[in-house]
């Protein structure tokens, strides 16, 4: 991979492994240069994804990737919603739409760093998507059973005015399958990005606290975001 190092020169980030000092210097330089920016750009609001409160150390990515993702992500997410909601009239459905929406999250994580993505897309949200989708699917299926019909017998659904069969199916696709697929795919992404938990005796005993503290104080020391630390944590890889 040594032939690839030259390519990083055109980016803002310093990706040379094991040079934490130069990284700090570069970060300091960036801070200095940011203070000379015009006032409307000098201090990002604390709620912004690229602000230091959300991000810890400023995370910069290629000037090609970040703006392009900023442009593409809303359209891709909208298209995922379209595929999900329009499954009855065109190709698509909950599975495909959910996968596209999860792919948008992957895209954002690649562009803005996975730690900040973990911050705004908490574990609660991912789990709520997957579990809520499964419960909603089962609930839509069980309502006709409660009314004396069969499982998923849509024409017994108590939907006023609208066609219960069509909107029951759309409901299963939209609030059932799509959240399950997108939640589980996002969860798999976060899981694989963090890797195998080789510390402790497994199932979080003894090791979860250490991992949890990483998230709490916002430090990115052991999470593999920095190149040098990623090399140090070789036991995990």
């Amino acid at each position: 991979m040594s032939d690839a190092v030259d390519d990083t020169d055109m980016t803002d980030t310093v990706t040379d492994p094991g040079t934490d000092d130069s990284f700090d210097d570069a970060a300091a330089d960036r801070d200095g240069s940011e203070s000379e920016l015009p006032p409307h750009r000098a201090a990002p609001r604390s709620g912004r994804l690229d602000s230091e409160n959300r991000q810890g150390t400023p995370y910069t990515e290629s000037q090609v990737i970040m703006p392009t993702v900023k442009v593409i992500a809303p359209f891709a997410f909208t298209f995922g919603l379209f595929i999900t909601f329009h499954g009855g009239g065109s190709p698509g459905g909950g599975f495909q739409g959910g996968a596209i929406m999860a792919a948008v999250v992957f895209m954002i994580a690649f562009a803005f760093g996975i730690e900040s993505t973990r911050d705004w897309l908490a574990n609660t949200v991912v789990v709520a998507l997957a579990v809520g989708g499964a419960l909603a699917f089962a609930g839509i299926g069980l309502v006709p059973v409660a009314l004396g019909g069969a499982f998923l017998q849509y024409d017994l659904l108590p939907i006023p005015i609208l066609d219960p069969v069509k909107y029951g199916m759309e409901g299963v696709e939209i609030v059932g399958i799509a959240p399950i697929v997108s939640g589980v795919l996002m969860g798999l992404f976060f899981l694989l990005a963090r890797g195998f938990n080789s510390e402790g005796d497994g199932f979080g005993n003894g090791s979860l606290d250490e991992d949890g503290s990483i998230d709490e104080d916002g430090s990115i020391d052991e999470t593999g975001t920095l190149e040098g630390d990623a090399a140090d944590a070789g036991g995990d890889r």
Binding site: I65, I100, M107, F110, G113, G224
Partner: peptide, 28 residues
């Protein structure tokens, strides 16, 4: 629709592979 999906997601595949190529092990 399929062409649109590919146009949108092909970009994701490209940046994933290229980031992996530049800094291996630090994909993210």
């Amino acid at each position: 629709d399929i062409a649109l999906v590919y146009a949108l997601l092909n970009f994701l595949m490209a940046i994933a592979i290229s980031k992996f190529t530049v800094e291996r092990g630090g994909v993210l």
